[in-house]
Each structure stands twice: as structure tokens, then as C-alpha cells.
Amino acid sequence: LKGVVVAGGVLAGAVAVASFFLRNKRR
């Protein structure tokens, strides 16, 4: 169960970083 929580956190972080980079590329 702990691994699932960690994986979810990593996935959420990756999505946040990806969206951040996409926003920067638009400018």
C-alpha cells in the first residue's frame, strides 16, 4: 500500500512539472 501512495505522489509531481513546462513553452 505504501508503494502505491509513493507512486501516486511521484505521478502527481511528474504531471505538475509537465504542465509547468508546457506553460513556459507557450510564452
Rank of each mutant, 00 (worst) to 15 (best):
L1C: 10
L1G: 05
L1T: 01
L1W: 12
L1Y: 03
L1P: 08
K2Q: 05
K2M: 09
K2N: 09
K2F: 09
K2R: 11
K2W: 11
K2P: 08
G3N: 14
G3D: 07
G3I: 15
G3Y: 12
G3C: 08
V4T: 15
V4L: 11
V4K: 13
V5P: 01
V5H: 03
V5S: 06
V5T: 10
V5E: 03
V5W: 04
V5A: 10
V6T: 05
V6I: 13
V6K: 14
V6Y: 11
V6Q: 06
V6L: 10
A7F: 15
A7D: 03
A7R: 12
G8W: 09
G8H: 10
G8I: 13
G8R: 03
G9I: 06
G9L: 07
G9C: 07
V10S: 03
V10D: 01
V10F: 14
V10K: 06
V10A: 12
L11T: 02
L11N: 00
L11V: 15
L11Q: 00
A12F: 08
G13T: 11
G13K: 11
G13D: 02
A14V: 14
A14Y: 13
A14Q: 03
A14S: 05
A14E: 00
A14K: 03
V15L: 12
V15R: 05
V15H: 06
V15F: 15
V15I: 08
A16E: 02
A16V: 04
A16L: 03
V17D: 00
V17C: 12
A18S: 03
A18Y: 10
A18M: 14
A18E: 00
S19R: 09
S19N: 12
S19H: 15
S19T: 13
S19G: 07
S19Y: 14
F20E: 01
F20G: 03
F20D: 00
F20I: 13
F20S: 03
F20Q: 03
F21D: 00
F21T: 02
F21S: 01
F21C: 06
F21Q: 02
L22D: 01
L22P: 01
L22S: 03
L22H: 03
L22A: 04
L22Q: 02
R23N: 05
R23D: 01
R23T: 06
R23Q: 05
R23G: 05
R23F: 10
N24H: 14
N24A: 14
N24Y: 10
N24E: 04
N24R: 11
K25D: 08
K25P: 13
K25S: 12
K25R: 14
R26M: 11
R26K: 13
R26F: 15
R26P: 08
R27L: 11
R27I: 09
R27Y: 12
R27H: 14
R27K: 15
R27D: 07
R27W: 14
